[in-house]
């Protein structure tokens, strides 16, 4: 955990913030699953195998509100569509080797993709992606295990405001990319589309629909968002 790739834009504070957030979110997710009566080993396995908070939470939410297991699985797949989009975004600059991409796919999250894309050189992008993946996944696994054991102590993570850490981290990630009008327009449009459709389409689809606002990028062909290339 002590190593950061040198010569890149990644700074120690960013890595620590991501690690802290995913550790805390993992605890919260474990508590939610424990409250729903899920076997502790299954919670730890979910963290290791699925590697996504939103997917397992979508399943828990769908089944807790009366949906079948099939509905829950479909919900989890829909909310995960953004990972496929993010993977497609970063893939052209990662390794051409299919074997390496098999491993890279496992750790495709929002923060490591967003921060890796700041790098101008592909070699630096790959180093940041790998490093941040470790900074993200290890706290995520450890937090999941901790959450299983401290679930009885922290009965209400909402009272501690832990549910806001995830979107707050995303605010910090997004902030530095909103450096010109078109970036702000895409961000605002994405948020508006998601909020405008959330009550009418199944969970996960609002994010997929919001991704289409990236097409606004065609308006100015020579101005990609700051630090994204």
């Amino acid at each position: 955990m002590q190593q950061l790739p040198t010569g890149t834009q990644l700074v120690r504070g960013e890595a620590w913030a991501i690690g802290l957030t995913y550790f805390t979110v993992a605890i919260t997710v474990s508590i939610v699953h424990r409250t729903a009566g899920t076997d502790p080993w299954l919670i730890v396995a979910a963290a290791l195998i699925v590697n996504s908070a939103t997917a397992t939470l979508a399943f828990a939410s769908a089944t807790a509100s009366g949906g079948s297991a099939v509905t829950g699985v479909l919900s989890s797949w829909i909310v995960s569509t953004r990972f496929g989009l993010l993977a497609a975004t970063i893939a052209p600059r990662l390794w051409s080797s299919r074997k390496k991409r098999l491993f890279a796919a496992y750790s495709c999250f929002d923060p490591n993709v967003a921060l890796a894309l700041r790098e101008e050189e592909d070699s630096n992008l790959r180093r940041v992606y790998v490093s941040l993946s470790l900074w993200l996944i290890i706290p995520w696994w450890v937090g999941s295990v901790v959450g299983v054991f401290v679930g009885n102590i922290i009965s209400n993570p909402l009272a501690l405001g832990l549910d806001v850490m995830f979107p707050a981290l995303f605010v910090a990630l997004l902030w530095r990319q909103l450096d010109h009008g078109l970036s702000k327009l895409v961000g605002l449009a994405g948020a508006a589309v998601a909020l405008g459709t959330v009550e009418f389409v199944p969970g996960g689809l609002p994010i997929l629909l919001a991704a289409f606002t990236a097409l606004l990028g065609l308006r100015k062909k020579n101005t990609p968002p700051n630090e994204l290339h």
């Binding site: 995303f170 508006a192 909020l195 959330v198 009550e199 991704a211 990028g217 994204l228």
Partner: peptide, 25 residues
């Protein structure tokens, strides 16, 4: 270039949904 804007759109959407919605409302 369109692909490079996708993280911006997705991050903004996730922030909005996790801040202003609860169980789809």
């Amino acid at each position: 270039i369109v692909l490079s804007y996708i993280p911006v759109a997705i991050l903004a959407a996730v922030i909005a949904l996790q801040t202003l919605t609860h169980q789809g409302e």
